[in-house]
């Protein structure tokens, strides 16, 4: 083989939000860029997402929420990973997220937050950089 390592990432939809257009598009774009992608489907609890990330041994977790519940839910995913000694898996997120929440989310351990209109290339680049770390 000797080729590049294949990175594994998880795309998760925590909470009750059913808007999965963005999550699915990103999952597919990542696959097209050579990532292995686990997509959780909608309406998962933070605990379910953290457990899936650990069991699937992923390099990065990407979360999507458009219902305004990102503060609670993104934070809980970070905490659930910590609880299971998997805080080395970086968490990033995206959705309808106001500027002021982004700072707070970063303080709580979310590495990066994307808002609507972000070019796909930039998102993929972030996944790759975090995987390489």
């Amino acid at each position: 083989m000797g080729g590049k390592k294949v990175y594994r990432v998880l795309i998760g939809k925590p909470g009750l939000d059913g808007h999965d257009r963005g999550a699915k598009c990103i999952a597919r774009a990542l696959r097209d860029s050579g990532f292995e992608v686990v997509y959780t489907g909608i309406r998962r609890t933070p605990e379910e997402i953290a457990m899936a990330a650990i069991q699937e041994d992923v390099d990065v977790v990407g979360l999507s929420s458009l219902s305004g519940a990102h503060m609670e839910l993104f934070t809980e995913v970070v905490e659930a990973l910590k609880k299971h000694n998997a805080e080395d898996i970086p968490v990033i997120g995206g959705g309808i997220i106001p500027e002021e929440d982004i700072e707070e989310l970063k303080k709580r351990g979310v590495k990066k937050v994307f808002t609507p209109g972000t070019p796909m290339e930039e998102i993929i680049k972030t996944f790759r950089e975090l995987c390489e770390k």
């Binding site: 909470g15 009750l16 939000d17 309406r43 609890t45 219902s67 305004g68 519940a69 503060m71 609670e72 839910l73």
Partner: peptide, 9 residues
Amino acid sequence: MSKGEVGKV
């Protein structure tokens, strides 16, 4: 399951 979602959307 409602945690964080009450009254949001």
